[in-house]
């Protein structure tokens, strides 16, 4: 009896723990320095670095660097996201004006360039990430 109660508690806690895992989280080891933040804004179906005018700009990052990419949607009524297909990372789709999502990831060690895009508007909202 006692053993069975303990088992039930363990199963229950495990189930809760599994259910409580946030969706799509990238688990980052503790103790790392704070990631570098890049703020991207979508306006008129175009990516901009927050505060800059260059449309769909090239983003420069360092190999192995930890990045916290914050995407803000300024296009009312349109759904946008930010995805890097080759690294299999992306924000969730932002539907409302002013909505934000953050993406934390570690840049792969391979140098070179890789494209980023908005999934629903990949033909006009796309740019390049340069890994240095």
């Amino acid at each position: 009896m006692k053993g069975s109660i303990v088992r039930i508690v363990l199963i229950g806690v495990a189930a809760l723990g599994a259910a409580a895992l946030p969706r799509g989280a990238v688990i980052v080891p503790a103790g790392d320095p704070a990631p570098r933040e890049i703020r991207i804004v979508v306006k008129d179906m175009t990516f901009y670095v927050d505060g800059q005018d260059m449309p769909n700009p090239m983003l420069r990052v360092k190999a192995g660097e930890r990045i916290r990419l914050v995407l803000r949607n300024e296009d009312a009524g349109m759904t946008h996201d930010f995805a890097v297909a080759s690294w299999k990372v992306g924000t969730r789709a932002l539907m409302d004006k002013g909505e934000e999502d953050a993406l934390v990831f570690r840049v792969p060690y391979q140098r070179g360039t890789t494209p980023y895009h908005c999934t629903p508007h990949s033909e006009m909202m796309r740019g390049t990430i340069q890994v240095e």
Binding site: A15, L16, A19, A20
Partner: peptide
């Protein structure tokens, strides 16, 4: 109760 809390959160 715990499950409900988790469901409401996730």
């Amino acid at each position: 109760a715990g499950l409900l809390v988790v469901m409401l959160k996730t």
